[in-house]
Design a protein around this nucleic acid. Structure first.
Length: 384
DNA sequence: TTGATTTGACCTAA
DNA sequence: TTAGGTCAAATCAA
């Protein structure tokens, strides 16, 4: 009776939000088309003008906001769809866009998958929900050595380890080394996969606000070799003696991938189409902010960084169109660096491993200029 | 000596 | 009440 009317209203609102998001996405796409037509090839960095960047950023924000609202509706009004089959359209989106999509928490543990039925019953209770987080998986090829400058450009310090219920391996907890000094609240969790010990799931939480983090992007981070646990096998940095810049060689076979852990779906980089150049495969977000943008939320901060910050334009930064999510976006080097850390960790897991500078990883990138990482958007592959 | 890791205890969201 | 996440003292390593 009354509820059906309300449901209808909610659905309508939801659809409106999603529609708006779609429209905004189209606008963004157009912007990208305009700004990239002059440089069609995916490899060259887009020639962004600050104004267009702002526009795009604004659009992205609006898109996110729109989807966020839609998700909120789904979340808080789960009952609307709760007892009925998911409408193919809306339901699909809602699902793929599980909350974390925008807040960046694609992790499996809390698998936000489907706005968790039990979630909405007590909507306000969430553990550290405010902290954006995203997960990526890294797989190493047994037998291949990992070496090198693998580090994600950040200095991490392990502050805990815990056995996780149902997990074969313990989870390692790391936080930014500069937490105390600069108040950087970035943390990450490393969990070895039960199913495939060669796979590590790294969950990043919060963004780096430390300046050194940014700087480390261009220069090798301060040496802070970490020891590691064979189980979690991850540690962030290898001894400095490897400079990490040169090591980024996509042809060294390193294979890494992010995925929706919660669903187990391994989404290979979806065509998050942002424009001509885009197959957003890679880039970006994960970029350890060369320029930290503390004032932005994590997602946006990262998101925009690679794709608009000219400063990174240096030779290092392989700019590609913006990604949809940090997890999946990687600039060449950065991409690599991002993986680096994980790999490093992994490698360091095998601590003794002596790796040659040429990382023996199996990165499934197409090539130097065109890599098609298996990175997938943890969250919203179907963003659009 | 300094800084990182280990690990048991504690806190708190669910 | 349980389990994930964090703290902090003890320990280790460079």
């Amino acid at each position: 009776m009354e509820t059906s009317g309300r449901d209808w209203e909610q659905k309508t609102n939801l659809i409106n939000e999603l529609t708006e998001g779609m429209e905004l996405a189209k606008q963004l796409q157009m912007h990208l088309n305009v700004t990239t037509t002059s440089s069609p090839p995916p490899s060259p960095p887009p020639p962004p003008s600050s104004s267009s960047n702002e526009t795009r950023e604004l659009l992205v924000l609006r898109i996110l906001n729109s989807y966020d609202k839609a998700l909120s509706m789904l979340k808080w009004n789960g009952s609307v769809f709760g007892d009925q089959p998911q409408p193919s359209g809306v339901g699909a989106i809602g699902r793929s866009e599980s909350p974390r999509s925008f807040s960046g928490s694609p992790h499996s543990d809390d698998s936000d998958l489907e706005f968790k039925a039990h979630d909405h019953k007590n909507g306000s209770k969430k553990r550290k929900s405010a902290v954006p987080r995203w997960t990526k998986q890294v797989q190493i090829c047994p037998g291949t050595g990992l070496e090198g400058p693998l580090d994600d450009g950040f200095s991490w310090r392990k502050y805990g380890q815990k056995d996780i219920l149902g997990a074969k391996y313990p989870r390692g907890y790391y936080r930014c080394t500069h937490r105390n000094v600069q108040g950087c609240l970035a943390t990450k969790q490393v969990q070895r996969s039960d199913e495939d010990p060669t796979v590590f799931e790294i969950t990043y939480r919060g963004r780096h606000t430390c300046t050194s983090a940014a700087a480390s992007h261009l220069a090798p981070p301060p040496s802070s070799p970490e020891k590691q646990d064979p189980n979690t096998a991850l540690n962030i940095q290898l001894p400095q003696h490897h400079h990490h810049q040169h090591s980024l060689d996509f042809q060294t076979g390193l294979r890494a991938m992010t995925e929706r852990l919660d669903t187990g779906n391994r989404l290979s980089v979806p065509s998050f189409y942002f424009g001509p150049t885009s197959h957003v495969e890679a880039e970006g977000s994960y970029t350890r902010s060369v320029h930290s943008a503390p004032d932005r939320n994590d997602f946006m901060g990262n998101f925009s960084l690679s794709f608009m910050s000219p400063a990174t334009s240096g030779t290092n930064n392989f700019s590609v169109p913006p990604p949809s999510e940090m997890t999946s976006t990687f600039g060449r080097n950065q991409a690599f660096q991002g993986l680096e850390s994980e790999l490093t960790e992994i490698v360091s897991g095998g601590k003794s491993a002596t790796l040659s500078p040429t990382v023996g990883l199996d990165f499934q990138f197409g090539g130097a200029d065109q890599f098609e990482p298996t990175f997938s958007f943890d969250d919203n592959p179907e963003f659009f």
